[in-house]
Simulated assay, not measured.
Amino acid sequence: MPRKLLLYAALLTLTQCSKCKDDPRPRDPAAQLPPATQTGAGTFGCLVNGQAYTPKGSNGMSNFYVSYNPTFRGGAFGIETYRVENKDLTRYLNTDAAPVNSVGSYSLNLGAGVGEVLYSSGEGALCGFMYDSRDMTYRKATLIITRFDKSNRIVAGTFDAVIARTGCDTLKITQGRFDAKF
């Protein structure tokens, strides 16, 4: 009798654990982001309106690219990413900042080429493309470079942005992080 009871208890435990895989509760979106590292790991992630955004898929080009030109505008730094959701939908998230030449905090509120954030949801409508500072009603964005190693060509940091346009939902980019070689 004790052997059967032990067997039934083991089976009950196994069946209860198998239900854990199909848990309908959503995971914490921040847990889906890559860790914040400073090793040139080639990682990028953030929350866009509370949903995890990481580069994904391919259109024939790299879905995450970091550039740095020390001679243009005192040090032009850029991040370009995209995420292929399906064959009809690709999202883009890019940042540009200049002059960038060391560890520090940089405003991304300055306009074309010297500090900007571009987000395209891939939907093509006015609210699906948040970029042009001329028709934004509010924009506050910051890039913080936490490692800038020119000799090993490694850059890492964090970023966030809040962008609003009349008639559109406010775009909130939070917990942004990147670690890459340039």
Rank of each mutant, 00 (worst) to 15 (best):
Y65S: 13
M136H: 07
I163K: 03
D160C: 14
T137S: 14
G176Q: 09
A30T: 10
A156Y: 02
V103L: 08
R139H: 10
G40T: 12
T13W: 14
E123C: 05
A98C: 11
V114D: 00
V155I: 11
R3L: 14
T39L: 02
L126S: 08
D160G: 15
M1A: 14
T170S: 12
G74L: 01
T170E: 11
F64A: 04
A10S: 09
A125S: 13
L5Y: 00
T54A: 10
A76T: 09
S107Y: 00
L118C: 06
A141V: 07
D28K: 06
L7M: 10
D22N: 08
T15V: 15
I154S: 01
L12N: 02
T137V: 12
C46K: 01
S120P: 02
A156R: 02
I154T: 03
R153Q: 15
I154H: 06
E80H: 11
L93Y: 02
T15H: 11
T37Q: 09
Y53G: 02
S120Q: 03
L6Y: 13
T166K: 14
D179V: 08
F72T: 07
M61V: 13
K150C: 13
K21E: 02
G113S: 12
L7G: 15
L47G: 00
P99H: 13
S133T: 10
T39H: 11
L93V: 00
T174E: 13
A156F: 05
T170F: 04
L171M: 11
G45M: 03
T37I: 09
C17L: 12
R3A: 15
D149A: 02
D132V: 10
G113K: 01
Y53K: 00
L143F: 12
K140R: 15
I154G: 03
G124R: 10
T166Y: 08
R147F: 05
L47S: 03
D28C: 07
I144K: 08
K87T: 08
E80T: 10
A76L: 15
K181L: 02
A161T: 04
D28G: 04
P70F: 03
V114W: 09
D23W: 03
T43V: 00
K56L: 15
R165V: 09
I144Y: 00
G157Q: 09
G176H: 00
I163F: 06
D149W: 04
R165T: 02
G74T: 08
L11I: 15
T71V: 15
T137F: 06
T158R: 10
L89T: 11
T142C: 00
K21W: 13
Y68M: 11
P35E: 07
T71Y: 03
K87V: 09
Q51P: 00
V114N: 02
D23C: 12
F64N: 03
G176V: 03
R73K: 14
Q51V: 05
N59G: 00
F77Q: 04
R73M: 01
N63E: 03
R27I: 01
Q38H: 11
S105H: 13
Y8E: 10
R91V: 07
A156S: 15
S18G: 12
A164P: 05
K19C: 08
V155G: 14
D88G: 07
L126V: 07
K56D: 05
M61G: 07
L93I: 13
L14S: 12
L143I: 12
Y92M: 05
L12P: 00
L33A: 03
F77A: 06
